[in-house]
Computed example of a mutant assay.
Amino acid sequence: MTLPGERVVVRAPAKINLALRVGALEDDGYHDVVSVYQAVSVFEEVSATLPRDGVSGVTVSVRGTGAASTPLDSSNLAVRAALLLAERAGVPADVALSIRKTAPVAGGMGGGSADAAAALLACDLLWGTGATREELVEMGAELGADVPFALVGGTALGLGRGDRLTPVLGRGEFHWVLALADEGLSTPAVYRERDRLVAAGAPAEALDPDVPAPLAQALRAGDAAALGPALVNDLQAAACSLRPSLQRVLDLGRDHDALGGLVSGSGPTVAVLVRDRSAALELAVALTASGLASDVRRVTGPVHGARQVDPVPTSPFHPSNTPPTGPIDTIR
């Protein structure tokens, strides 16, 4: 039985899109997509603690990357995840959530979705609801298209809105350099720009509900050199139209012998594929010096999905126990 003050810590990965093909605008205002996700070594961490002293409801605090712009009410995906699980399991929605963010907000890497995935698993373990991974994935799909993948991790094909997942066979480790922007891009705005470009005559291919063959072959072989030319994103032209500096990042990567690169999802994060750690360091230095990115990360993929990690020591002098920034909201 979980006692007041006990906590569970879960980490879930951010993602990049190795392929993102976008279908026509549907009557419901959405686009069907075919996406190939890869989880990379950028992790969001959610601590779920059972409140003490009769406190009820969901409280949330945030620290780290983009904490100041992360909502602290029921629009926060992690809060919505806790409330949804409590409703489905028939348990009181009493939990203190503490989120440590490392993924950019509105950066096309699914950081908010990783928060939701981590919160689902953390609250399931804290409350002892006994939800299966399949049930958590189903709930995740109700919260957002990228949430199921943050639970599963690895490399996967996503259909529909991107939430119907099939694992993609692959081998090896891939090295990426991420160029982050200091301002996010609105996903709806990027899709609207995509629709405008298509209406103006930009090519729009019919969706093939499978992993593009060159991409699948490169992943199976663990061949980074073959993977680079196979990267594709139908939203890239729209994102670069709205934020021309993204194309300059891609050009710089090409000038430094990158194997390939693309805007991740709806942007503005740019993911550049390189041969190894040495090449990643060289490109990261060049990107930092260029001033084209507010932050540069060297990461690898694929990595695992959401999983529990050991809580940090409870001593108040431990550096990981510094108070989170920002206010704490209570949602009942």
Rank of each mutant, 00 (worst) to 15 (best):
L25H: 10
E142H: 13
D124T: 13
N17Y: 12
R248N: 05
R220H: 06
G160Y: 06
L50V: 07
V9E: 13
V272G: 06
G305A: 07
L262G: 00
F149Q: 02
D146W: 09
D255E: 11
A39E: 05
E134V: 13
A237N: 05
G107V: 10
V274H: 07
R275H: 15
R161H: 08
V190E: 01
A82L: 05
A68P: 12
V36W: 04
R194Q: 06
L121K: 05
G66Q: 07
G110I: 07
G29A: 06
R332A: 13
L197T: 10
T330A: 09
I99W: 00
V147W: 13
R161E: 01
G253L: 05
A286P: 11
G54C: 12
V232G: 05
P203C: 03
A239G: 07
R161F: 09
A12K: 09
S245A: 15
H175G: 05
A225F: 02
G222D: 03
G130R: 06
L77N: 00
V22Q: 03
A216Q: 04
L3P: 15
A239E: 00
D210N: 08
Q247P: 01
R275A: 15
V62P: 01
L207Q: 02
A24G: 15
P302L: 12
R100H: 02
D255H: 09
S320R: 15
A116D: 00
V198R: 01
P302R: 03
G158T: 09
S47L: 05
V34R: 02
G291C: 13
D182E: 15
L292R: 00
T330E: 11
V263F: 14
D28Q: 08
G66P: 04
E183K: 15
V285G: 01
V40M: 08
D223P: 00
W176C: 09
V312T: 11
A24H: 14
G170K: 01
A206L: 08
P209I: 11
V299T: 11
R194T: 03
V263I: 14
I331V: 15
G111S: 03
A216C: 04
A131E: 04
L72A: 08
P188R: 08
A225Q: 13
G112L: 03
S74H: 14
A12F: 15
A189V: 11
A293K: 12
A271Q: 06
L151G: 02
V91G: 03
A103D: 04
L84R: 07
G170R: 06
A116M: 01
V60S: 00
P203D: 03
G108R: 01
R161Y: 04
L242P: 01
A103Y: 06
W127P: 09
A280T: 13
S278F: 15
L83Q: 07
G301E: 05
D255M: 09
I16D: 03
V40Q: 04
G162K: 10
L125D: 12
N321K: 00
Y30I: 07
L97I: 05
A67E: 14
F317K: 00
G154T: 09
N17E: 12
S98V: 08
L231I: 08
L125N: 05
A204V: 04
L169Y: 15
T2C: 14
G144Y: 06
G261E: 02
T288R: 15
G228Q: 03
